Amino acid sequence: MTRIDAKFAALQAEGKKAFVAYIMAGDPDYATSLEVLKGLPAAGVDIIELGQPFTDPMADGPTIQLAGQRALDGGQTLQKTLDMATEFRKTDDTTPIVLMGYYNPIFSRGVEKFLVDAKAAGIDGLIVVDLPPEEDDELCIPAQKAGLNFIRLATPTTDDERLPTVLQNTSGFVYYVSITGITGAAAAQAADVAPEVARIKAKTDLPVIVGFGIRTPETSQSIASVADGCVVGSAIVGELASGKSVPEVLAFVKSLADGAHRA
């Protein structure tokens, strides 16, 4: 059982929904992002998504793209992202960390070496947005064998014919993208999301977490109420980009987490 599996089991026992927070590693700089990372659990975050910056982030909107560029300009590398996880694990051995990004940095490092290093750093799962199920032998299956969850995205365009393929080797949870398009775009609507979550849950026992388009405690609550939890990324990254202090950013995160936990 991974930390992700254990976290969902604990939340289910408490009758609570999950709040997942995304930050970009190295944004606005290494020290600040590490401070935010370490503060997320106390702000109510159940699972952390740690973004690995990449030069061509095709699935991301302007907010995440700019965060990635700032991180890269500041010298953030895959090794430094793993170093952040290692530092985090010195004081927190229970909060799951999902590394989210693109395949190129992993491929460049070498899959085998990457999996050994990620596991040693305390990474629990991977979301690699540009590796479709047809490429599962490339990273997904080796990752699962190494004890890492491989989390897949389902979208409004994932029809009933495609869904079983998407779910086939997925573990940890299913990330449902609430809107068609890039991160940070339109607002998510619970009325639209609810039937889609039900459709996915009819095909899998995995938790379904909804992301994209969640910026307020109210939306966090309404989306979490129709799923197993919600993810917020762009809104948190935007707070950092606006020059807010770490305590201010973490207070904002706590308001979103409280919303999800009220669901």
Rank of each mutant, 00 (worst) to 15 (best):
K17P: 13
S33H: 05
G51F: 12
Y176H: 15
A154T: 11
K145W: 01
I209W: 05
A194S: 15
I179M: 13
P96K: 12
L66G: 14
M58E: 09
A154L: 01
R162N: 09
E134D: 09
F8H: 07
A190P: 04
V197G: 14
E49Y: 02
K119E: 03
S234K: 10
A121K: 11
N149G: 03
M84T: 12
S255N: 09
G211N: 03
N104Y: 12
T157H: 11
Y176N: 00
L240P: 08
Q65K: 03
S255M: 10
T94M: 01
A121N: 03
K17F: 01
T158G: 11
E196P: 04
V128L: 13
V208A: 04
F107I: 00
T32Y: 11
Y103T: 12
L126C: 00
D73W: 02
L163R: 04
L40P: 08
S33F: 10
A13N: 07
G74N: 11
A235I: 05
V98Q: 13
E196Y: 10
D29Q: 02
L40G: 01
A118S: 04
G259R: 03
T170L: 05
G147D: 11
A241Y: 04
N169Y: 13
S178V: 02
P207F: 05
G122S: 13
A59R: 02
F150I: 03
A10F: 09
I127T: 08
T91C: 02
S255H: 08
T55P: 08
A154P: 00
L50P: 05
V237H: 07
D159T: 01
V237P: 12
V197T: 10
G147L: 02
P207G: 12
V177W: 02
I127Q: 09
A260M: 06
K17L: 11
K119A: 10
V237F: 15
I106C: 13
A42C: 09
L11F: 09
F19V: 00
A143C: 07
V111Q: 07
P217D: 00
G44P: 08
P28S: 01
P96G: 07
S220R: 11
T157L: 09
D83L: 14
A42G: 14
G243L: 06
Q144A: 03
F114Y: 09
L148F: 00
